[in-house]
Design a protein around this nucleic acid. Sequence first.
DNA 1: TCCATACAGTTCTAAAAACGAACTGTCAAA
DNA 2: TTTGACAGTTCGTTTTTAGAACTGTATGGA
Lengths: 158, 158
Amino acid sequence: MARTIGVIGDRWTLLILRECFLRTRRFEGFQSALGITRHLLAERLKKLVRQGVLRRIPYQESPKRHEYILTQKGLDLYPIMMAIVHWGDTHMVDERGRPLLHQHRKCGKNFDPVMVCSECGEPLSAKEVHTHPGPGARSTPAIKAPEKPKAKARRSAA
Amino acid sequence: MARTIGVIGDRWTLLILRECFLRTRRFEGFQSALGITRHLLAERLKKLVRQGVLRRIPYQESPKRHEYILTQKGLDLYPIMMAIVHWGDTHMVDERGRPLLHQHRKCGKNFDPVMVCSECGEPLSAKEVHTHPGPGARSTPAIKAPEKPKAKARRSAA
DNA sequence: TCCATACAGTTCTAAAAACGAACTGTCAAA
DNA sequence: TTTGACAGTTCGTTTTTAGAACTGTATGGA
């Protein structure tokens, strides 16, 4: 979880990714849709490309221009998005109702996402789940902070 | 989505909440498990209580002490947690494997969470979903930034 | 040709947030 | 009387973010 948060755990990244799912692909598109500062947007896009969530693909040569599209790794973030949206729809709507509806192409209906057990198909809730250490468990129960960037040493700082 | 991100969209909140799901309830517990600064922890807990995600409950009187437990609103964040953990398990594990396994009490098996359509029960993927504006849709497609805290005016700053 | 605009960034300064470490205050046990 | 647990606060420093301007390529007029 800490590692995932290292990827999507800031105020803007998830919003950028949402725009990707809504088919935004270009710098100006993200910038005007989100109102994010250009500086941060450039940095976040770079980071997402480094992490393999987005791919940077040229779409014209004259002045080199690229667009950002989701990789499979990025597309796999969809359940996270949907879970977040659904929680907002449940607990954060105002009297006007949901800003966005989701229609399932297969069955044609507007739906909510439901999380189920991969083994038995039953809906999941926190109380029915028991966690235990896996093979990659760390020895100490303490997590060592999420992704400390470690002083980055920018331009020979005095 | 922007509203949900206003609640959980920073480096620490989700980690704090994860500890809650793992039955941590007290200040020192969070602090030592996460290595978060005490200052931030206090602030985040306060915010989560304000937002109705945690409840602050006294557990002793002598020196007043409280513990933080999830409300229903907080428990409902479980699918988000699971989706995040699962993405990490899929895309961010090292050679040692998953740090944590999840067992479903009902069926007894270790499982992965799967997101399905509430209407037809089929697993969801981004491509099979069509979004369209709902009753609470905003007029402009632009989002006005996530939760600008608006200068907070703390103690008559000069 | 000169000027304006589109696009994708980069650079800069100021403001806000996070870090780190020490400090406050209550109570219990040694 | 001192020490330690617990739950925070306070404060000075470092990092991030915001906000705005600037760079550079290319197109479309006037």
